[in-house]
Amino acid sequence: MRYLYASIFLWALLGVGLIIPNIADARPVSYPGGITLMLNNDNDKNTAHLHYSPTAKTSIGYKLEYWRDKELTLNAIQMNNLLKRWNKKDSQANLYLKSGLGIAHSDKGDFDNETQAAGFTGLAADWENRRFFTSYENRYTEAGDIDDFYSQSARVGWAPYEGDYGDLHTWLMLQVEHMPEAKDNVTVTPLIRLFKGVHMLEAGMNTRGEALFNYVLRY
């Protein structure tokens, strides 16, 4: 039941994002022939994801995750599918399926030095125009006997100005993450996103004073 309430809360936040400030998303699928590198660092984990998009509907790549408190390393082949895109005159919305298959290695407790098969899957949705952005995504991760966990997050963002093509684009965002099994299971992180050319940077700090730093390179 707690999951349900949390989901309703995050979806409500997503809805609010349609009418007040919000963000732009690091797209899980690029243009045909595009290669994307994504590095994410937050209070829970450090991740790297390198993917190639043969079409504008699919990307396949390698995902490395290290969950610091869990002392869990995940190596996976990840595939992202654009299930549906809504292109409108002044906005765009997307629905993605993101899944991975690989191995998990634990260095903690009863599972010290244990390696098992692992997989994860989840849905991601976003909507944006040139001033407002909102997104939601969830994921279920299964790492054999070592661990299994569910997480979800939502973002809203607002661009203080509308940059032209090639300009520096700036977004102010608020991210809310929910991880039911965690001690602090809700994390709220205000952040800034800077986007220019093929580079995108995000920096923020959550309400517990922990830093977030993400970098995306598209070429």
Binding site: P32, G33, R85, N87, S91, Q92, N129, G163, Y165, D167
Partner: peptide
């Protein structure tokens, strides 16, 4: 339709850049 961000513009520039007939493209997000 759907041309709402710098990334969208860059995608189209890349796609048309591969065409021999195309000298270049200009994108107006407004």
């Amino acid at each position: 339709n759907g041309l709402v961000c710098d990334f969208c513009a860059r995608a189209l520039e890349k796609v048309f850049g591969k065409e021999e007939a195309v000298k270049g493209i200009d994108v107006n997000l407004d």
